[in-house]
Design a binder for these strands. Structure first.
Lengths: 352, 352
DNA sequence: TGAAATAACGATAACGCTAATGTATGTTAG
DNA sequence: CTAACATACATTAGCGTTATCGTTATTTCA
């Protein structure tokens, strides 16, 4: 009277071994296609395992192999299409390599990020892809110290030994700025977030350079419309549109009459469009507008918004590839930093 | 000459035990706040573990406890804001209960879904929250058979023993339809996806009932604008707007002149707006429009779109709560089905 | 004061798997 | 014909925890 059909307990290697009259070790070798098993025996074992519904216990396997075949992804917010698309692509690439993805969300909170990192450390992950929050956390050092491969995306952390993949913010802003300059704009305003963060700084820098290259003056007091940073990251980011609406309205109230806007996020353009509509300022006749991100709704704005297609797929693919190489020890030892240039998407808002 | 500072190897319970002159067992009890340890000893052990940077090995822990404290989330696509918000909320709730989230994406593909399910089964998850693809897969039966707690969201699977949480599609469409009827609409058209799927069917049914309750006739040939199902789910869903644009343009070309539209997705409204603009039909003066989903961009459409706020947070919270209860064995045994009624968001597109 | 209860810890086993050896067979070469 | 060598399997050990039971010293109460 065996407990073969005991209903609840999952069959183990032992159970399979008992049925075929061999030992667990041999069954293990057979199922994992390792040498030292008679082909006929191997076939028998596989058939029997299948029949019993044997599923290897990952916990035991992870313990002995020291790996879970899981990578962690820490991002601030998957409501942001850039990050959701990034996570999607990482999941796809990792899945093809037989790795699963553990998702950890920080919501731009340094505390939550620290918790996420600790969770990741405790979870015995094989590697980590992360978009850090704006505030630098020293918990990342623990990741490095624990020897867990780490690849950063989107935002860099100063003085940390980790590969980095990102869209090229400076090249991006230069593309959009140059696009309106080519159309004859002489007074361009940049609408962007008011934060001393590296990505924003790079955009500012690129903006300035494009203006100077065109022989135009750059005055931060008149050519920048800075949007206050958001208060919460739990909700979808339409606050960005509201804030951009306010900031650009103020700008016109102060008597400014620019002939072009380049913005750091498509949602800013959404708010800007409202400002312009309210004041009877026509796009593109009176002002040119360039967005950032190619959000799905931009094609249906009136007029359709010219914008920037961010290379999230490339970023995700390269970051995942690099991480897997590090995990498998096939990566070159030096730290790599890769900024991928985005692509212009020209529509009606920037052409006349 | 010990290997105490060997640099690579993580310290284990044994290592901590050796340092404090006790056994691994006692150290385990001390660190996990289980009784049977002298308070002074406990404090010493904790301090020493901290000093050594001891992190418990989850693999060993999972093996002996038979649990990873991880739940799986299978959804079709996190580019869809509804699902990304849902996943966010699940991650938040699960995190508070000490559970991490493994993300698996199916992209509406039955094959990928099957793979995801197998991956989940092999990964020794404690439970599963899933939004199944349109095509019924029998792999779900394996989940049930393996005794892994399963909670479905958004889409039901006929004849499966699993809890189900969803927005109330029928109540939702009745809310939006009644809203335009109250404003005096006499000829309403429903724009929705052309799929024999339960959520769509429920919406169709609700739409018909609302019309009949208002004493209006319902003719599927004139009052339905069906949008073909998408071909790919990898990219963000702006194809929905394109298709809705085409379908509604056709409708006007055939001479129809409805006085209101209710749509099954905000992106449909985006395409519909274009159709109306091109033909000089004014919203809300000539036609009323009601959206679905309260996507962040709807507030900034011109005119701002009335829509439905989907209770994704409630769905996620209740589903997660239910799953955790099942995992911890504190759930009532019977299967529960819960449809949460969404909330109207009235803006300019449906009022005059 | 002595028997029983309690506290604080140790010894041992177990979770299910894989890796390193060990041991019979059968096969080949000189 | 025997040494050398594969082949196909079994034996043993170990991954790092937690759980169950013992053991010893200390406290409690009649």
């Amino acid at each position: 009277m065996t407990d073969e059909i005991d209903g609840r307990r999952q069959p183990t290697l032992q159970d399979v071994a008992k049925v075929v009259g061999l030992t667990a070790n041999t069954v293990s070798r057979a199922l994992n296609d390792r040498p030292g098993v008679n082909p006929a025996t191997r076939a028998l074992i596989k058939a029997e395992a299948e029949r019993l519904g044997y599923v290897p216990n990952v916990h035991a396997r992870s313990l002995v192999l020291g790996s879970r075949r899981t990578i962690g992804v820490i991002v601030t917010n998957i409501s942001n299409p850039f990050f959701s698309d990034l996570v999607s692509e990482v999941e796809l690439q990792a899945g093809e390599a037989g790795y699963t993805v553990m998702l950890l969300l920080s919501y731009e909170s340094a505390n939550r990020e620290r918790e996420a990192i600790n969770m990741a450390l405790r979870s015995g992950l094989d590697g980590l892809i992360a978009a850090p929050v704006r505030e630098r956390s020293n918990a990342w050092d623990n990741v490095i110290r624990a020897g867990i491969p780490l690849v950063l995306v989107s935002r860099e952390i100063p003085q940390i030994e980790a590969d980095f993949f990102s869209t090229d913010n400076e090249a991006g802003i230069r593309l959009t700025t140059d696009a309106v300059l080519r159309m004859g704009a002489k007074d361009v305003v940049l609408v962007d977030e008011d934060m001393p963060f590296s990505t924003i700084r790079l955009r500012l820098e690129g903006f300035r350079r494009s203006l100077e290259a065109a022989g135009l003056p750059f005055d931060p007091r008149t050519q920048l419309a800075l949007v206050p940073p958001p208060r919460s990251f739990r909700v979808a980011q339409s606050w960005q549109a509201d804030d951009a609406y306010r900031v650009t309205s103020d700008l016109f109230d102060r008597g400014r009459r620019p002939d072009a806007f380049v913005v750091g996020d498509d949602y800013y353009a959404l708010g800007l469009y409202r400002t312009l509509r309210e004041r009877g300022i026509r796009v593109p006749e009176d002002v040119l507008v360039m967005g950032w991100g190619n959000h799905p709704f931009t094609r249906f704005m009136e007029p359709p918004l010219s914008t920037l297609l961010l290379p999230f797929q490339d970023v995700a693919r390269q970051a995942t590839r690099r991480l897997l190489d590090r995990i498998q020890g096939t990566a070159s030892p030096e730290i790599v930093t890769h900024r991928i240039v985005p692509e212009l998407v020209i529509r009606a808002s920037s052409t006349r």
